[in-house]
Simulated assay, not measured.
Amino acid sequence: MRKNIRLTSPELSALWTQYMNDSMSICVFKHALKNVEDKDVYSIIVYALSLSQNHIVQLEKFFKQENYPIPIGFTEEDVNLEAPALFSDIFYLQYLYVMALHGMNGYSLSTGTAIRNDQRKYFVQCSKDTMKLFDQVMDTMLKKGVFIRPPFINPPHDVDFVTKQNYLTGWFGKRRPMNGIEIGNIYYNMQKNIVKIVLEIGFSQVTQTKELRQYFQRGAQICNKHTEIFGSIFAEEYLPSPKNWTTEITNSTVPPFSDKLMLFHIESLVAVAVGYYGAALSVCQRRDLITHYGRLMMEMGKYAEDGVNLLIKHGWFEQPPITDDRNELAKKK
């Protein structure tokens, strides 16, 4: 019996989600390799592509072992390798940086919910490989001088304890300076929003569907507004904000990817962003920041819901692993 233990629902869902994301990444990286000229960036994308391709091979083995249908995901039909570059070489570094961050967090969660030994080993290895990719991206960005470090804070003269309730004050009364945890969360959420803005502007430029163009433009406006709010919070305390990358979009109007892939890509990033906002909210200790995150999460959540509805409308929403509908099965008798 031990040799035939089935995958649990979290294990199966983790594999399914990874298959969708890696099949999408293969399309993105293949197109990038056709246009990237910087040798350092090229070698990193080659490594990232090899990771995604190896993942797909192993994932298909897992699905076959479980007699579970292999997802369709994304194929050669979803990428136009002849399309000119949509983004610059330097932007791909920032893109890979953010995607590696998502990957490390995702694999960590998948490892924590895996029970079977083969699943734990697999996701631990995925984490190691992604950490290596992250190191390569970070080293290259620092070498090229294109990474803007998060704000610094000076060490205190001594250990201190909070003695007044106004430590939590936000809207009324004197606001305390942000602590390092709050600064870090705002900074990294800004980094991720900035990448989404570039993708949404670029995708709105090449999509052939008016409905999707409007959706991408709306997303860019939302992310830009969120970035401005976070930036204004930093500005109040004379802290620097991350670099804006919108100048790294080319003037191409030829779609390198299918509408299905572009919509899925944005939708998946928005869904992750809602989670990051929630994580940041959970450790905030200033009321105004808590209120900001709560309000922005609702706006991002509504945008994500509208994106899912578009996927469903166009028949592009591949159903994730789902439990049996017992009531429906009973009707068939």
Rank of each mutant, 00 (worst) to 15 (best):
T8K: 02
P10I: 04
S13Q: 01
S13P: 01
W16R: 00
W16C: 00
M24D: 00
V28A: 06
F29N: 12
H31D: 09
E37R: 15
D38G: 04
K39L: 06
I44N: 06
I45G: 05
Y47A: 13
Y47Q: 12
Y47S: 14
L49F: 03
Q53M: 11
H55F: 00
I56N: 00
V57Y: 01
K61S: 01
F63K: 00
N67E: 03
I70D: 03
I70L: 02
E76W: 01
E77C: 02
N80E: 04
A85Y: 00
S88N: 09
F91I: 09
Q94V: 10
Q94R: 10
Y95N: 06
A100N: 15
A100I: 05
H102Q: 08
N105V: 04
G106H: 07
S108V: 03
S108G: 14
S108D: 08
L109T: 08
T111R: 07
I115P: 05
D118H: 07
R120Y: 08
R120K: 15
K121F: 10
V124S: 07
D129E: 15
T130D: 03
M138R: 13
I148N: 13
P151H: 05
F152T: 14
I153Y: 08
N154D: 12
N154L: 14
D160E: 15
F161V: 10
V162K: 15
Q165W: 11
Y167L: 15
F172N: 14
G173Q: 05
R175N: 13
R175E: 13
P177S: 11
N179D: 12
N179F: 08
N179P: 01
E182D: 03
G184W: 02
Y187E: 07
N189E: 09
K192I: 09
N193T: 10
E200R: 06
G202N: 06
F203I: 06
F203P: 08
E211F: 11
E211G: 07
Q214F: 11
Q217W: 03
G219E: 09
A220T: 09
A220E: 07
K225H: 12
E228H: 05
F230I: 06
F234L: 08
F234Y: 14
E236I: 07
E236L: 14
E237K: 11
Y238K: 15
P240A: 08
P240L: 14
P240F: 04
K243E: 09
K243N: 08
W245K: 05
W245V: 07
T246I: 14
E248A: 09
I249R: 04
T250C: 05
T250D: 06
P256I: 11
L263Q: 07
V274G: 04
V274I: 14
V274N: 08
Y277T: 11
G278D: 09
A279R: 06
A280R: 12
L281R: 11
V283P: 04
V283F: 07
V283M: 11
H292Y: 15
H292G: 04
H292S: 15
G294Y: 11
G294P: 05
G294R: 11
G301W: 15
K302M: 12
K302D: 13
Y303E: 13
A304D: 13
A304G: 10
G307R: 10
V308Y: 08
L311K: 01
I312H: 09
I312F: 06
I312A: 14
K313L: 02
W316P: 01
E318A: 03
P320F: 01
T323Y: 04
T323E: 07
R326S: 05
